[in-house]
Computed example of a mutant assay.
Amino acid sequence: MKSWPQRIVVLALLGGLVLALLWFQGIIGRHEYVQASIPAGQAVAATTRTQTVQRERITDLRVYPGFVEAVDPATLAARVMGTVVELRAREGDRVAAGEIVATLDDRDARAQLAQARAALDAAGARALQSQLALDRIVALGESDAITAQDLEGAQAARDAGRAQEVAAEQAVAEAETALTWFQLAAPFDGRVLERQAEAGDLALPGRALLTLYRGDRLRLRLAVPEQLVAGLEPGADLHVDFDGLPSRSARLARILPPADAMTGTVIVHLDLEPSGDLRPGAMGRVGLAVGEREALLIPAAAVERIGQVQRVGLVREGRIQSVTVRIGKRIGERVEVLDGLAAGEQVVLP
């Protein structure tokens, strides 16, 4: 049987445990904070400009992404087999029409040209020799010292010499033309879109070495749902937005006939105005009308952005209160309010 001192110690421990639990739960020892009153908003001054939140019917736009691509890019490919000696341009570099941008090893072609020129010199010498022989026979023919058979033979030799000389001239022209195939020139003023080879690579006939494009010949390739294509007409102006670049208008140039059976979309081409800030591959967004809907609209200037938070000054009972709102699409100089305001309320303008 426990003695009284032991019972007192046990009771003290239990009491301490209960008090600790009550303190942790904040039932005892809790400090009561005095709730501070929220200061009232700034009073509306006589010079304060306000605008009423309006509910209007707007065109419902659905945004579709597209990508900039070059119109009729030029692919420079080798016509003969040879080692790439030099490529003088890389992606993004400017090139001028007629500028040599790629060179192949042409030592064999130069040797063939030298052989063709030597053959031409030999053919010319033979043609001259046959002509001189014919002249002598003709001179002797006046004295009846030669026969008709000798004259005909000399004329045939002269004609054969001339034919061989002409053939040699054509062989030289062909060799000179073939030599030009070892240098590739830019067909127009533009930029390098893609570089498909490096120095030392073996170029094969038809293998692309460089792809060029014209900066003033760009378009936006856009996939549009089939049900929206019926409302599009070539020649229509559409608005295109680019990330980090100014928005611009583009003309609907072409609606391609086939539809993608997997996605149910049709490809359309929008011609872009010449601009130095666009490159092939840039993504643009086009809004297409899919109907109408109601929306709350306020001036875009009334919205204050602090980081990711959007706030407006709202007039209530003669005072200005800062309220958080959720903003949707921008429509001209106004923005759509998705949450935080109601029609008929007044917002403060800067």
Rank of each mutant, 00 (worst) to 15 (best):
G41K: 01
R30G: 15
W23V: 08
M81N: 04
L296P: 04
V303R: 07
G318V: 09
E152P: 00
F24C: 05
W23I: 15
V138R: 14
V315F: 04
R319S: 10
T263Q: 10
E336G: 02
Y33A: 15
L11N: 13
R117M: 01
A250P: 06
V325P: 14
A186T: 08
G344P: 12
D135T: 02
D60A: 14
A171D: 05
R107T: 09
T265Q: 03
G153I: 11
I327V: 07
V166S: 13
L113C: 02
A302M: 04
R117F: 00
Q112H: 08
F242V: 02
I28A: 08
E304I: 11
A203C: 03
E198C: 02
S130G: 08
R107A: 15
P258R: 13
A197Y: 07
A302T: 12
L76N: 10
A343M: 14
R219F: 03
D241C: 09
L61K: 01
G153Y: 07
L184Q: 01
T47N: 07
A230Y: 09
G332Q: 13
D72W: 11
F24E: 09
W4P: 12
L296N: 01
V71M: 08
E294R: 07
Q170S: 06
V240P: 10
A109P: 05
A125M: 15
A118W: 11
G231I: 01
Q129C: 10
E194G: 00
A289P: 03
E69P: 00
Q321S: 12
R55N: 07
I38L: 06
E32D: 07
P225M: 09
F24K: 15
Q54H: 06
V138N: 05
I320N: 00
Q164F: 12
A20N: 09
G291F: 01
F242T: 13
I255K: 03
L278I: 07
R221P: 05
A78W: 06
E194I: 06
V53F: 15
R285G: 06
G307R: 02
A163P: 03
W23P: 12
E336L: 06
D237T: 13
R285E: 02
L104Q: 03
A178D: 05
G26W: 10
E226Y: 00
W23E: 13
L218S: 00
E292T: 05
G235P: 02
F67D: 14
G200H: 04
A160T: 12
S247R: 06
A208C: 00
A102S: 01
E333H: 12
E292S: 05
A46W: 15
L297M: 11
Q196W: 13
L288E: 05
T59F: 12
G307Q: 00
